[in-house]
Each structure stands twice: as structure tokens, then as C-alpha cells.
Design a protein around this nucleic acid. Sequence first.
DNA 1: CTCCCTTACGAAAACGGTTTCGTGTTAATA
DNA 2: TATTAACACGAAACCGTTTTCGTAAGGGAG
Lengths: 343, 343
Amino acid sequence: MKRKITLKDIARELDVSISTVSKALKNSEEIGRDTKDKIQAFAKLYNYKPNNIAISLKNKRTRNIGVIIPDIVHHFFTTVFRGIEHYANDKGYNVIVCVSDESFNKEVINMEMLANGSIDGFIMALAGETQLKNDYNHLRVVTEQGIPLVLFDRVTDEIQCDKVIINDETAAYEVVKKLIKAGRKRIALITTEGYLNVSAKRADGYYRALKEHNITVDKKLVLHLPYQQMDETKSKKFFKDNKVDAVLCVNEIFAVKCMGIAQKLGHRIPEDIAFVGFTDGILSHFATPSLTSVDQHGEIMGETAAQMLIDKIERDHENEEEEVFETKIITATLIERASTPEF
Amino acid sequence: MKRKITLKDIARELDVSISTVSKALKNSEEIGRDTKDKIQAFAKLYNYKPNNIAISLKNKRTRNIGVIIPDIVHHFFTTVFRGIEHYANDKGYNVIVCVSDESFNKEVINMEMLANGSIDGFIMALAGETQLKNDYNHLRVVTEQGIPLVLFDRVTDEIQCDKVIINDETAAYEVVKKLIKAGRKRIALITTEGYLNVSAKRADGYYRALKEHNITVDKKLVLHLPYQQMDETKSKKFFKDNKVDAVLCVNEIFAVKCMGIAQKLGHRIPEDIAFVGFTDGILSHFATPSLTSVDQHGEIMGETAAQMLIDKIERDHENEEEEVFETKIITATLIERASTPEF
DNA sequence: CTCCCTTACGAAAACGGTTTCGTGTTAATA
DNA sequence: TATTAACACGAAACCGTTTTCGTAAGGGAG
């Protein structure tokens, strides 16, 4: 087993000082041609690579960024992650991922683990539980320590930091407007239980569109389902009890599942009921009929978040000017497929 | 901005030595009650947390593990990742993820980046290109340095290390056997182009089942499609040209897409054609009809891999006994749904 | 009073680098 | 020949810990 070789090893073998070796490997002008050649050849021969940890300690920079997301087996979050990973890798950063499983405690523990020197900055989407508790102390602690933080998608106004979100409210508004223009009168909203920032915003857009077109909101047409799982009986009852001609769902699972239920009840899609979902994932493509869906451009969100974070990390080292925080808004786009009439 | 406090800061403030502070915070018997109380109180007040990087440097252990996978927007890999992350987190390890994008070069670069001290061990699934090139030198370099490595799913016999795989061959064999028992005569195989270890094994199982039941293999019934995307015209032609009554697909995308094509051509599923896919993901649940699929138990694979790796990492520190490598085989199970007749 | 053993703490090396500054040698210049 | 600048390199501090070893002070025994 060949243990890794260090500067000290090279110095000893070649009978020079450690500083000389260090400089020679950085091709410093300070070192003579012959000595440099000798050292560089030796280093290459023995495949010398500097130890990242030692460099991190010295520079107080790890070139790692920490990503904390609620779930990883989830199309949108993995898409964002891909964007982050690509951008970060390009810039020479590695990504440490922690999954909060929507749990407040896990989120706190993960942040504390990483905040003690392991990373140069955080990118995260808040756990559902955190949003519910409305407790962001762990975020505050981290930012006060001067660790850059970028929130995406699941954000909060309580914390001053960079943010990347999509125009959820407007996107929902536009979709509902299109449905109204297409002649739909009884438009349902299927959303999550509990408090999720993004669901609430999508609902806002839904309400605004209805109001603007003088459609009175029928509370019966808003169905709340448990997050990330389906309550089959509840949704079946919903479609039996209510006459609807269009449905906006805050995610694609709800949409696809409800399309199935509606179809079984004899409704034709999109003739009788039009369906639109959020999160343009794999399900939307392959559903029957294929689902018209709001594309959140996760990869772009990820890239944007990573760019904002790395900018801040690298600027941090130059000066200590007043902090300015930005919120970037990604524009969602509607991907039209077979579950809606042509708009 | 409160910068992080160090041992040195505490020592200075309380007018004791750094060593005393270090020992006091570890509750060492060496330090007097009063001094310990004083130091511990101060540390708590100022929220002292040791710097991970410094500890890593000192201990030559990072408590990070590196995971390199071909893709992250991919149900199976994220499932495995979830298993890894959960187990690792439980044991106090963090996970650094790199995505090779199926590229040999990226895989090599990522490994080199991480191998220089950033991680204590690797868990990886080989990139498609790596399997094609059959070049595993980067893996060899790493293992020779004494860095533990666990391969999963996409493995190779060329490298001696721990491995976790599923019984792909047997699983495919069993499926095809069931289809034959159910009276199907013309069973097709839809697999990937190029060289993917797992696809090859699944094909082996397919051939073995046919042979054992004296069904002559019809090369026309084996369709090769480009990986992770669909060649629509090619597959449409396939179903027009060939009369088949069952199809085994090496992934669920192929299966769901081909079901759609077959249905459009007027075939009933499962009466005319039965479909079985590999990778029991979200698509299998929501397809119409829902897809009978081989569950690869990704989460268990991930946990198993993480357990093997961490065992090895932590054993490494105890003794330098002869290395023993294991290959653990996870048993895949068939999830029967509506795309097959009842077996 | 001396000797020795605890007790309680500090000095220093080590982990593997980077970087500042000092210095001996040589050659050019006055 | 004396002065000096350029060159080439080394010593040492530093990043934040851990850990070994040394030692001063104090108390008890003889």
C-alpha cells in the first residue's frame, strides 16, 4: 500500500527544505531552474498531490458547499441539485448533501455539523416542519457567523440572505386565467395540507385569477391532500361530489393520480376536465394523457443558487463591504400537453 | 459578525494554556474542577464548537464519504443515495456527491479531487463510458492508496473491493420463467445499446430462461435502444414488424414508453402483450396500466454499501490485517401490477 | 527538614501545507 | 578592492486541534 507522499517526504529525499519544495511545485520564480526541475520531476514521479485538508486549514476555505434539501428521491430537488453540482464542479467546488427528511431537528443538526468548518456556504430549501414551526434560529446563527447562505424554492422572509424562487403566484395565476379563457367555469385547486410556502403562493395565484374574472371562490373546489402521498378515498369523494371542468394541482403526483380517478369515474380529459400540474417531471411526460405542467426549471434554479453562493464566497475574501442580498426570480413556463385543450 | 471562537481565544481570555482548554472541554481528569467549570461555562456561553478541518488534519479522518454516481435525476440512484445518506448520517458521516454524467473523464477527475484527503472512502456506481472503455486505473490508484472503496450496481471484476449488487441475472430469469409458465411464447427483450453490465446480466437471465424451456432465441425479438432516451420510430417499427406476447424491459422508461406504443397499435395489455420492467420507480406506479416491475431495493443497497464502507474505514484504524473483500447480493423482488396476467 | 508522590497545568510537537522574511553566495559596479 | 544588488534557498510562524511529556507546587511520610 503506497501511502500518500507529502512535501516533507520530498524535502527529505531531495535534501532541500519544505519551503523550497512548496515553492518549486508552484513554479515560483524564487527557485532556481535546476532545483525546480528536480523537484517537479520527483513530485510527478511519485504522483504528489497536496492534501486538501491541510490547504483548507491554512486558507480557511474548503471549496465545499453544503446543500440541505428536504428529500432526495424527488424530481424537482434532484433537478435543482444537478444544477448546483454542475456549476459548483465547474468552479472547483464539491458538494456535501444532507437530507432533512422534512424534519426540523435534522435540518438543525445537519447545519450545525457542516457549519463548523466543513463548508464555505449553504444552499438549502427549508423542511416543511421548519416552515410550520416558523423557527429559523439555526439559519440566523449561521449567517451571523458570516457563512453565506442561499435559500431556494422553500424560503422565508424572516432571514436576510440571497434567495432563488420561481414566480409561483403568477404562474398559477396565468394557468387559471388560461383555463378561464378556454371557457372553464368550475376550476378546482388540489393542494397540500399543512403549511408549505410554495403551495400557499400557488393558491394565491389561483384565487387572484378567479377574483379578477368575477368567479366566486367555491371553497368546496379546494381540496387539501397530505403531502407526497395520496388519499385515494378523499379524492374519489371529491370528484364524485363536485362538478368540475378544470383542475390545478400543486404537484404532478396529485395531478396524475387524480386524472386516473377522474377517468375511472367516466370523465374525459381534457374534454370534460382539464388538468394542469406543477413540477414538470417524468410523470408528466408519461402520464396518459400526458400532463400539461408548469416547468419550474429546477436546473436553472440550482445553477443560479450556486452562482450566487460562490460569488458571495469569493467576494467575501476581497472586502468587507456592506452586505447586499438579492432575490432572483425564475420564470416558470407552461408545458402544454394532452391534458388541456389547446389554449 | 461573530467570527467563530477557537481554543486559543478561550485560552487567552481565561489566561490558561491551549492544552488546558482542550483537555477541560473533553472533561479530562487531568484538569481541576474549578478550572474545568470555568472553561466549560465560557465555551458554552460563546458557543464554542471545534473546527472540523483542524480535527480532520490531526486525526487523518474526515468523517466524509464520497459518492460518485452516473446521474442524480434518476430514481434508482437517488434511492440508493437515500440509503447511503441515512446510514452515514446515523454514524456521524457526511456525504459528498459527485456526478459523473456517465463520463469516464468526469469520473476520474472527481475521484482525484476527493482522494486527496477530502474523504475517508468511496461508494460508487461506474459510469457507462468507464465500463465501455474497461479502464479502471483510477480505481486501482485509489485502492492502492488504502482508501476503502465499495462499488454498487455497476461493478467490475477488474477491481478487488467490496461490492453490492442485485441478482440481476436470476431476477430476469425468474420473470421470463413466469411469463413462459403463463403461456407466453414470443417474449421480447428491450435493452440498452452499448455496454452496461447490468443490462448484460438481465439479458443473460432472459436467454437462460428461454433455453431451459426449449424456446429458440429469436434475435429479432431483442431490441436495443439508446440509453435513457427513447427511439420512438425504432420501437414503433419493432412492434409492427414482430408479433410478441410479452416484453421484458431493462428499465421502466422503456417499458412505459413501449406500453404506450403497443397500446396505440391496438394491443391490449396484458391480454395481448404482457410488460415487465426493471427498476420499480414512480413511473411503474402511475403508468396505465400500472407496470409489473422488478424492485431493486435501492435503499437497502445504499445502506448496505454504506455499512460495508464505514465498517472498513473504522476497522482500518484498528489493525492492518489482510484485506478481505465481500460481494453482497441483494435479492430483487417482483412487484406485480396490472401489466401482467396473474402469475 | 528532606524526600517523594500527587495534583494541575503548560510547553511543544505533530498533522500538511503556505508565506513572510532573513541570509549566504555570487557577480556586477564604483 | 570594497559595496551592493540579485539570486536561491531555508527558518519559522501560522491555520486549530490533540496529545505526550515535563514540571512547579503542595502535602504527607519518615
